[in-house]
Design a protein around this nucleic acid. Sequence first.
DNA 1: GAGTGCATGTAAATTGTTACATGATTCG
DNA 2: CGAATCATGTAACAATTTACATGCACTC
Lengths: 188, 188
Amino acid sequence: MSLEHILLGYLRQPSTGYELGREFAEGARHFWYAERSQIYPALRKLEARGWLKARDEASPVGPDRRVYGITAAGRKALTRWLTGGPQIGRERLPYIAQAYFLDAVNPADATAVIESMRAVWRAKLAHLETLEQQLRADYGEPKTWPPDAFHPYTALRMGIHQYAAKLAWCRETLGLLAARTSAAPVEA
Amino acid sequence: MSLEHILLGYLRQPSTGYELGREFAEGARHFWYAERSQIYPALRKLEARGWLKARDEASPVGPDRRVYGITAAGRKALTRWLTGGPQIGRERLPYIAQAYFLDAVNPADATAVIESMRAVWRAKLAHLETLEQQLRADYGEPKTWPPDAFHPYTALRMGIHQYAAKLAWCRETLGLLAARTSAAPVEA
DNA sequence: GAGTGCATGTAAATTGTTACATGATTCG
DNA sequence: CGAATCATGTAACAATTTACATGCACTC
């Protein structure tokens, strides 16, 4: 299961379920999302399996919290997951399905659908680009960064590449759609 | 739920659960996958809801089969899904997570992980490009195609854009990784 | 008659979502 | 004291995966 290994990855730095929830809602949201109601039981399960250990701690700002950290067994499991082959092939991309079936609506609506995708992806790309510029302003050339900063940066770059490609597709498709409309106009 | 609407989309042309299973395993596999054990109950549910109707039919080559087709209510539901906003924001992309946590393994292993991703994506891109070339050889300029051929083609184009972007990221990342290794070699 | 492809399914387990419960601490 | 943020969870439901069951028709 991927979620468990993602939790393991984050917990090389000790953290809490609540904090991980925020991580998914912010830092990781271009590649993964999990509700806290899924995170808490998953952490308990990982602890029972011996991949995490927990301690209760007083919070400086709120109620007590449960701080998890990875164990040696957890580290081994994480390494196995990372080197056990790329996790590719079970993507669920409903927005491509929407594009696929767009002949079920009229051309004007089809155009509107793609324009609204473009708006969403533009916003997401802008967000990642802002993050990237902040990192570069703060730390300079990525190739000199320590591994624990460099690899999250490459994940960010992947997001940027992906959103840019989606936007290129929007442009291409809107262009083709316009060419089709002028070739066979809906209404004179 | 996306699966239900994807089934609805395919079933504007009457088809069977078995055939849809093959569709997911072949034509749609760059954006969606469903097991037949999930498809059959989903079709029953859609039929109970009145979005599909079924008839049993003798197969020319095997046992009887259940041919589903969409109803007027199903068509309306599909249109609502298509125009009700882009289905964006719940992607699960474990391979980006793998990239993110790659500092948990040594640089040589990290490089190997990205190289194996590259191999997978190269194969997937090559497959989609073959499909595209076949379509163009058979039918010519996409902008003149009928809508029910054109939109699946744009979905294929999306896949091509996405895989090309992933490969660009692999190249970029492998380059950075090489630059880092030469800057701080593991062993003299 | 054994294997392959066609064809439909069920059962159990896992994973993920939605809705809700509970309570501490801090700020205005 | 009311609202916001911190903090951990449970319950019910929905979606998905994995494993298995069943049987037809055709070819070797």
